[in-house]
Nucleic acid binder design. Structure first.
Lengths: 357, 357
DNA sequence: GTGAAAGCGCTAACAC
DNA sequence: GTGTTAGCGCTTTCAC
């Protein structure tokens, strides 16, 4: 053994180390590992042996830099704590993983500034694709990067942009049907609770609400409340509404947060539920068929939506020129226990209802 | 204007483009942008102008390769759909973002093979840190990379490893207290439902259960059920238990999944709940104080746990030699409506109880 | 304080 | 098939 300065043992072996050990060119190692080109069996064996002996593990970073692709997709959602988005992310991570992509996850917390900031870093990481439920429809953060964005699919929100693929539920129709159900039950005073009427998806849901009321000649009874993006805000707003002289006989909540806010408000006032007030919620979860009363809700096709999003992204990855598409998936209604006939006869519905039980 | 072949307009400007335009060295651009070194005001201005003019945006990939750090942390959880993990991830993403890190998210779906596979890719991406709630305590996936792992913090599970920092709830004590509550109410037949007794956290919870029963002289009444990792599995197991000749008067569910499974089982059998059977759950969520009966549960300090995890990771990033620490955070009990006195007097508790209502 | 040059680890292009 | 070479875009010595 010579004492001459040999190449020191590198703490983490590189492809070159493997190549030297196997007595082949680095490119050959690369080809063995990636399988991109045929390599003679003998060399391949030597390479594999060298890989095993050195414990070599490829550095994706270097590979990505060279190949100009990262096999990474960014996902931006407003709130991971909301089961709707959690389910979407869960499914997307699944699909992405199957196709060899990893997920860079960002939660915007419904905050535009934060979203813009995080998006910037996401893009600087050279993500191959972007999936986003933007905090605001304008998606100013996106516009700022116009022309420099990777293939992008919007979901749930911001679908007004013609330059992006998008997936949404058929919001208007879902709410229209929900309202019909309530009206059919005899409800004339239905309050509709959204987070923010500034969001297109909420506007669509409001449209469904107004549609249905007008079709029933109840147009002048429409009341839309904006409770904000957190449960407590919605709760406060709804509580106040239920304390009015002529409270609604039913609440229709336009999303998960509003739904929870509504039940909390009803509980806080200790109302007989659904006796004194019915509730139609939005978004279905495990627990809704478990505690009482089981909630009647609009069910968004979450799995199908995630599938559609991923499908659009894959297609966009293959062909950046194809025209953008907006997929709108139908919702279903799960009518359960939280909606029932109002106590007051329809013709007396304008009379004040005593709120306490 | 010369027709000579000038450098073509590069579709995406690089630091070199900016440097040329500003008439400075690439290194200077780098220094302006990173702020790592002082740059004379005049040059700085020229650089900034060139950045604006070209619309240059740094390539983190190249930077990471050179700097040998990615400002990225991998998070592996068994199930994003479980609000406990969703909340953990949510909070961790928050903390990471504040510190300039991004999150590569992986859901293992409680599947070891998948976990190992995804972990491999995660590591090849040169993540700076790893946060993991391993599918199995052995965390074979981790062991396979022994010595080549970035700073790693385990949470909720796998905390038996002396070579990793870890954060868990005080499982044994939490369950012990929960059991005391049930026993105090007069319950002598309490079934304990875990997902899998192979997990250390479940074993700890079981230990708390046995402790409490033995302390009350009820050691021979202990019944531990393993329902598996999905709600339906737990439901089936619990349903069967409730149909025995001598059904338990109370169910103690050892995690979120088991809790939901328990309520489903109770509903499926149409039992008077909590009249005929009490339920003590595990993990607190928004909806538990909203529908009836409000569930009595063990509350894990999720936010504090995430904070602790992040804190440990940051410290480990700073000092890889420091001894590993296992932080164990106390839980609290939320006693609500799902637990009440059993209908049968304690001294008759061994008599069969009629199950139908 | 600034520039020149080397190189992070990998792969694509091109010879042979 | 396999080796050689030249970078991917950035940061970091090291001179000046």
């Amino acid at each position: 053994m010579s004492i001459a300065p040999e190449k020191r043992f590198s703490p983490v072996p590189t492809m070159r180390d493997v190549a030297e050990r196997a007595g082949v060119a680095p490119a050959t190692v690369s080809n063995v590992i990636s399988g991109r080109r045929q390599v003679r069996q003998e060399l391949r064996d030597r390479v594999l042996a060298a890989v095993a002996a050195t414990g070599y593990r490829p550095n994706q970073l270097a590979s990505s830099l060279r190949r100009m692709r990262t096999d990474t997709v960014g996902i931006v959602v407003p709130d991971l704590t909301n089961p709707f988005f959690a389910a979407l992310v869960h499914r997307l991570e699944d699909l992405a993983g199957e196709d060899g992509y990893q997920i860079l996850l960002v939660g915007s917390n419904e905050d535009e500034a934060r979203e813009a900031d995080r998006l910037q870093t996401l893009l600087s990481r050279q993500i191959d694709g972007l999936i986003m439920a933007p905090a605001r429809d304008e998606a100013a953060a996106l516009a700022a990067h116009r022309g420099r964005l990777p293939p992008t699919v919007l979901m749930d929100r911001g679908f007004g942009h013609a330059e992006f693929d998008a997936v949404t539920a058929d919001n208007t129709d879902a709410v229209r049907q929900g309202c019909r159900h309530l009206i059919g039950l005899g409800h004339c005073d239905i309050a509709f609770v959204v987070t923010s009427p500034a969001l297109d998806n909420m506007r669509e849901r409001i449209a469904g609400y107004r549609d249905a009321l007008e079709a029933a000649g109840l147009g002048d009874r429409a009341r839309v409340l904006a409770g904000g993006f957190d449960i407590e805000g919605c709760r406060a707003m709804i509580e106040q509404e239920l304390l009015r002289a002529e409270p609604p006989t039913a609440i229709f909540a336009a999303n998960y947060v509003a739904t929870l806010g509504a039940v909390k408000a009803i509980r806080a006032l200790d109302l007989d539920f659904p006796g004194e007030v019915s509730l139609f919620g939005f978004d279905d979860t495990d627990w809704m068929t478990v505690l009482r009363p089981y909630l009647s809700v609009v069910v968004q096709p979450v799995a199908a939506m995630a599938d559609a999003v991923w499908g659009l992204l894959r297609q966009r990855l293959d062909d950046r020129q194809a025209p953008c598409r907006h997929l709108r998936l139908p919702c279903t209604l799960a009518v359960r226990e939280s909606t029932q006939r109002p106590r007051v006869a329809p013709d007396r519905a304008r009379m004040p209802i005593v709120v306490s039980s």
